[in-house]
Each structure stands twice: as structure tokens, then as C-alpha cells.
């Protein structure tokens, strides 16, 4: 395997991805990601020096519209999906002291 993923990298990616992996999952992730990156390295065979990156296949522009409310008040329906709610608001763990 050409790409060796370090413990530090997996920790860092875990922070970016907001995932908490067990030690066993971390080892698996290191090996999986290394293999995938080895495979993705194949793209390096292609010379893309003057190629523009293509994020969208059609030319797209910003799509503007007037900022007018068209939907109704869905507060109750929306809150009925919340894991925890209180007084018409989403309840979250304390974020600062």
C-alpha cells in the first residue's frame, strides 16, 4: 500500500467528519482509506495541466428569486421530528458556560 494513513490523520479526519471511531474502526478506516487512495492515485496518470476543473456539466448561473415567504408556519410539524424540544424550540446540550 503506497498511501499509509497515520493515526494523526485518522484523528484529524474524524474531527472533520464529526465521527467517533472505536480503535478497531480506526484501524479498519486506515486500511480502507489507504487502499482507496492508492486506487484514486490512478488519476495521476492523466496530464490535466491545462484542464479547467468541471464542477457542473452545464453552464450554470445563480438562480435568483424574490425573497418572499411561500410556505406556511410548519413549526409544530418540524418540532415533532426533534429528538428533544422545549417551549417551541429545539433543545440542545449546553454549548457554553
Amino acid at each position: 500500500m503506497a498511501n499509509v494513513i497515520s493515526d494523526e490523520t485518522i484523528e484529524y479526519v474524524g474531527i472533520l467528519a464529526k465521527l467517533e471511531l472505536s480503535d478497531k474502526e480506526k484501524e479498519q478506516a486506515k486500511s480502507d482509506m489507504g487502499r482507496m487512495l492508492d486506487y484514486i492515485d490512478k488519476l495521476g496518470e492523466l496530464d490535466t495541466t491545462d484542464v479547467e476543473p468541471m464542477s457542473h456539466v452545464f453552464p450554470v448561473q445563480n438562480v435568483f428569486r424574490e425573497d418572499v415567504v411561500t410556505n406556511g408556519d410548519d413549526r409544530e410539524k418540524l418540532l415533532s421530528n426533534a429528538p428533544q424540544e422545549k417551549d417551541g424550540m429545539f433543545m440542545v446540550p449546553r454549548t457554553f458556560d
Partner: peptide, 13 residues
């Protein structure tokens, strides 16, 4: 899903 989120987070980092 976790495998792809990890890979995606890495290639965008």
C-alpha cells in the same frame, strides 16, 4: 456511509 464520509472529508481537507 462512514467510510465514504471519512474519504470525502479527507479529499476536501
Amino acid at each position: 456511509v462512514k467510510r465514504r464520509i471519512m474519504l470525502g472529508s479527507f479529499v476536501l481537507s
